[in-house]
């Protein structure tokens, strides 16, 4: 524990700026993955243990498209759209068969998909790690704001994730489809009785969830290593986010993800040996104080 260092950091603008941006970037990428996870759970009551796999495949797709075209934008789009399509297939052929089934059955199917996809990645891209490399347009020196170090690439990433998150929030809150999705989350039978095609709706939820994870993978690919099984650690952190934010709550996921990012960035200065533990402590506190999460509905 190094409270002196933490205090020293909190009282200098350079440290506050640097660590805040660093916390935001970790948090926002996590938010994209967790948002899909929480959306799928909120509407379909499915805990998608294969969600980390969407993130991994999105990153690999982006890697290949970037390598072929040299365009980072195309790479990220390929990751997002590819995983939207994958999400639809995953829902149509596997998950649809286990709605309402024993949660162990759902877990088994998701875990099988995780293992199969990890092996597929090994077959296609090889067992070793891959690095996409920074797109040339972002190979620029970092900015110095109030003495703090701020990489331009991360500003772009944070902006993009904010736009995606905003679009998701507005889409769910204001559009007809969004309202229907929220209605289906509360009472699917009634939505179905009203003549709305819930089958299509469920596919759409998986498409959006998959797209978000795929986008996160694509966006992060220039700075993170691509390895088979890379989805696992992000999945664990996404679960922490959904538990803190409340299962099914997009706004909760956003706040929880940013809080986790900040816990990491400031925690590593104040508690260098216990940074990971801090995240779990945050989760435990929430579970004790408000078991349904910050924005979660009470489970009846």
């Amino acid at each position: 524990m190094d409270l002196e260092a933490l205090l020293g950091c909190l009282t200098t603008s350079s440290c506050v700026v640097t660590q805040t941006v660093s916390g935001l970037i970790v948090g926002m990428l996590l938010f994209l993955v967790a948002a899909g996870l929480t959306l799928i759970f909120g509407v379909l009551k499915i805990v998608n243990f294969a969600h980390g796999t969407f993130y991994m495949l999105g990153a690999y797709l982006a890697y290949s498209v970037f390598a072929a075209t040299g365009s980072y934008v195309l790479g990220v789009l390929a990751g997002g759209l590819g995983m939207a399509a994958f999400g639809v297939l995953f829902e149509r052929f596997l998950i649809r068969r286990v709605y309402g089934a024993n949660v162990l059955m759902q877990l088994l199917i998701c875990y099988a998909v995780v293992l199969i996809c990890d092996d597929l990645v090994k077959l296609i891209w090889g067992p070793d790690f891959r690095a996409m490399g920074m797109p040339p347009e972002f190979q620029v020196p970092p900015l110095f704001i109030a003495g703090g170090v701020v990489p331009p690439f991360y500003i772009v990433l944070i902006a993009v994730t904010l736009v995606i998150g905003g679009a998701l929030g507005l889409g769910l809150g204001l559009t007809r489809v969004g309202k229907t999705i929220r209605a289906a989350a509360i009472n699917p039978d009634m939505v179905s009785a009203l003549g709305i095609n819930t089958t299509l709706l469920y596919s759409m939820v998986f498409a959006v969830g998959g797209m978000l994870a795929g986008l996160a993978g694509g966006l992060a690919a220039p700075v993170r290593s691509l390895t088979p099984g890379m989805g696992f650690s992000i999945l664990i952190e996404s679960f922490i986010v959904t538990v803190i934010g409340g299962m099914g709550s997009i706004a909760g996921a956003l706040i929880a993800a940013v809080v986790l990012g900040l816990i990491r960035s400031f925690g590593t200065i104040g508690f260098p040996l216990f940074t990971e533990g801090l995240m779990y402590i945050a989760m435990i506190i929430i579970l004790v104080v408000k078991p349904s999460g910050l924005f979660g509905k009470e489970i009846v």
Binding site: C9, S14, C15, T18, Q19, S22, G23, I25, V26, L29, V149, A220, V223, R224, S225, T227, M230, S233, I234, R264, S265, G267, T268, I269, P272, T275
Partner: peptide
């Protein structure tokens, strides 16, 4: 080991 993001470690070193 296998941590996806080292950003907070990097900024800590810079500090």
């Amino acid at each position: 080991l296998g941590q996806p993001d080292f950003t907070e470690v990097i900024t800590k070193i810079l500090q």
